[in-house]
Design a protein around this nucleic acid. Structure first.
Length: 187
DNA sequence: TAAGTGATACGC
DNA sequence: CGTATCACTTAC
């Protein structure tokens, strides 16, 4: 039911696609929140100028260089936490940013559209950095129901205009037609 | 469209 | 030390 570590060791691009439709579970003070992953972005290693790892290994991005199936959380713009999953073998710094979720439990649901908003709603901060998705931490991912490839749309990633030739790479993946997807909706 | 916010990384 | 930058959000 909980995705095994082998799910995460295949590299950020395939895992980012395969994560669409899976169920993110987060334990909180008022019980567990369950939500369907509807939007992700892949950050594909040191050659990817949009990936933090392109500037080398630092204290901030250290867990991205570690084993797969762990959580990488950092702060941007002084106020927003970003939830990422480490998705390549140890030593290969790749990760998937979780950008939007469709709330399932509780019903009617809390705001989970946008990477900063969902972290705020779920109480995810840097204290979760390095947490094991396959262990006893607050955060897990379950199988969910498979999404056929034609229902996954790829677009350029959001907010990476500084990334030169990488800014237009189609590494953002959305569940087609889903209303919980953040920002401008793909066709 | 722009300001807000503070950790981070790097230069001095 | 100082300062530029930032995988965003919200309100004008």
């Amino acid at each position: 039911m909980i995705l095994p570590r082998s799910f995460y060791e295949r590299g950020a691009e395939p895992v980012a696609k395969d994560l669409i439709g899976r169920i993110l579970c987060v334990d909180g003070p008022s019980g567990v929140v369950r939500a369907r992953i509807v939007e992700t972005e892949a950050y594909v290693g040191i050659q990817d100028l949009a990936c933090h790892a392109s500037k080398g290994r630092t204290a901030r991005n250290d867990v991205m260089f570690g084993p797969p199936g762990h959580v990488y959380v950092y702060l941007v713009y002084g106020m927003h936490h970003m939830l990422n999953l480490v998705t390549a073998p140890e030593g290969e710094p790749e990760a998937v940013l979780i950008r939007a979720l469709e709330p399932l439990v509780p019903e009617p649901g809390i705001p989970l559209r946008g990477p900063g908003v969902l972290c705020r709603s779920l109480g995810i901060t840097r204290t979760e950095n390095g947490s094991d998705l396959c262990g006893t931490g607050r955060i897990r991912v379950e199988n969910g129901t498979p999404v056929p490839p034609e229902d996954i749309v790829a677009t350029p990633r959001i907010g990476v205009d500084y990334a030169g030739e990488w800014k237009d790479a189609p590494l953002r993946f959305c569940l087609r037609g889903n209303r919980h997807v953040s920002g401008r909706k793909p066709p």
